[in-house]
Amino acid sequence: MSSDNILENIFTPFQECINNEQDVREEIRNIMKDIEKPLREIVTTLQIIHRTHNGEEISAACFAARELFESVRAGYEKLDGVVPAGQYYRYNDHWRFATQRLCFLAALIIFLEKGFLVDKETTAQILGLHEKSRLHLDLEDYLMGLLNLATELSRFAVNSVTYGDYNRPLQISKFVAELNAGFRLLNLKNDSLRKRFDALKYDVKKIEEVVYDLSLRGLVPNRGEVVE
């Protein structure tokens, strides 16, 4: 076998394969910019919860965030046309992180609006990942989003006390306790989700300390009952 044959039969096709893959990745990266822009805007919009007690302002922020999700859905729609069929996990590095954050934001909006934990199906609908031909919402990304939500809520609990909302920490406490109980049911492998879950106990602890401080001073409204 001459050296030309080795190059021609083995390495040239391989380089072609790499080039094709790079092209797809480039296209995905470009679309991700369209998704990451509204993502950042939703993040900043929702930061209002740490500054105000005003329910109207918060629902206005939720509304604005929901509008921004429109662009997110458009982005995933485009992405669905670019990712080759059956190769979700070949390229998902590009959108995994953004998807996790969007899951967190969707869960935060639902928590603020309705007070309960968003299910996976609804999350997929908010992100625009339901009933797609090639894309779907990966369970682990959704779970990662929920863990991020717990962290955000621990901060929210602290800040809501600062502006005098003593009911909110109780609601958060119940919510996160349930979430924690849920996560404890899972048999996690030694992966990133597991590591992230290990940090959940700090969020739980912080929220419990806030509730404790309130209880101690008799600031808990209708002690033991949470207005949902």
């Binding site: 369970l139 306790a177 349930e178 979430l179 849920g182 049911l185 899972l186 419990e208 404790y212």
Partner: peptide, 30 residues
């Protein structure tokens, strides 16, 4: 005590809790 709220919630959680039901499904999938 610290953690009282969490304990209360945990004590009241049973298999019919919505969150628990969801996570039992996730456990199976994982």
């Amino acid at each position: 005590t610290v953690g009282e709220k969490g304990r209360q919630v945990l004590e009241n959680i049973d298999e019919n809790n919505r969150v628990i039901k969801m996570f039992l499904g996730f456990r199976k999938e994982l």
